[in-house]
């Protein structure tokens, strides 16, 4: 299992170019300030937006369209508010044609693995931030993706919870055998969760429009903590 990505995506007025390879079991962090196009890249890998150019290849298969084996955890989790925690986790399985009862059993199993089995019947509005994050991770992992995408996984948590959840997330990522791509603005997240981290570096002008293409090769650069 490996990921090869070579993409150009357009978002509004700017364009982001990114190219990297990630081996099986690795966790890649895309690090950069808010509004630098990280989430757009992630949405592209998830198949929610088409790349302007290029493609992503997982295990030699080109990713195209939704329904592929990509699991995504969104920034504020986006748990369906009208569905219980278990129904949220079962959603992807049901979309893959699993019967309701089997999907529900598998969902509760995933919730148990995340330590929130007792909240299976709760609606998202009744979950704490940490619980919601666990349910969202369970929902993304339940479809057994080859590629796991995490968009600012810890940003919605308060400082204390974030500390605990960071190590818990690290544990879950260690047991995940696919490729994980993680987007964050927090260097600490990148340091603790990811193996290599890639960071958006701003070169030359500070205006956002002049980001990637106008400064070839600079959109992504392999270097640690790299913006001030």
């Amino acid at each position: 299992m490996s990921l090869h990505a070579d993409l150009t995506v357009r978002a509004g007025t700017f364009e982001v170019q990114i190219a990297f390879d990630a081996p099986t079991g690795s966790v890649v962090a895309l690090l950069g300030p808010n509004g630098s196009g990280k989430t757009t890249v992630l949405r592209c890998l998830a198949g929610l937006v088409e790349p302007a150019e290029g493609c992503a290849i997982v295990d030699g298969t080109r990713l195209a369209g939704p329904g592929r084996t990509v699991g995504m955890m969104f920034q504020d989790y986006l748990l369906f508010p009208h569905l219980s925690a278990a129904e949220n986790v079962a959603f992807g399985l049901r979309c893959r044609g699993m019967r309701r009862r089997d999907a529900d059993r598998a969902a509760v199993g995933w919730l148990a693995r995340m330590g929130v089995a007792d909240r299976a019947r709760a609606l998202p509005r009744d979950l704490s931030g940490g619980q919601a994050q666990r349910v969202a991770l369970a929902r993304a992992l339940a479809i057994e993706p080859r590629l796991l995408l995490l968009d600012e996984p810890l940003a919605a948590l308060d400082a204390t919870t974030r500390w605990a959840m960071r190590s818990e997330l690290r544990h879950h990522l260690d047991t995940f055998d696919g490729v994980t791509v993680l987007v964050t603005h927090d260097p600490l997240d990148a340091l603790t969760l990811a193996d290599p981290w890639w960071c958006w570096r701003r070169v030359g002008s500070r205006s956002r429009e002049r980001w990637p293409r106008s400064a070839p090769g600079l959109a992504l650069a392999m270097s640690p903590i790299c913006w001030a």
Partner: peptide
């Protein structure tokens, strides 16, 4: 409604009709 919920459903493999039936309409 936040259309990102529909994105979330798509990312979980829901077809357009399923998105409307199970996410958009209930919301």
């Amino acid at each position: 409604i936040d259309t990102r919920y529909e994105d979330a459903a798509v990312s979980l493999g829901a077809r357009p009709f399923t998105v409307v039936r199970r996410v958009t309409f209930p919301m």
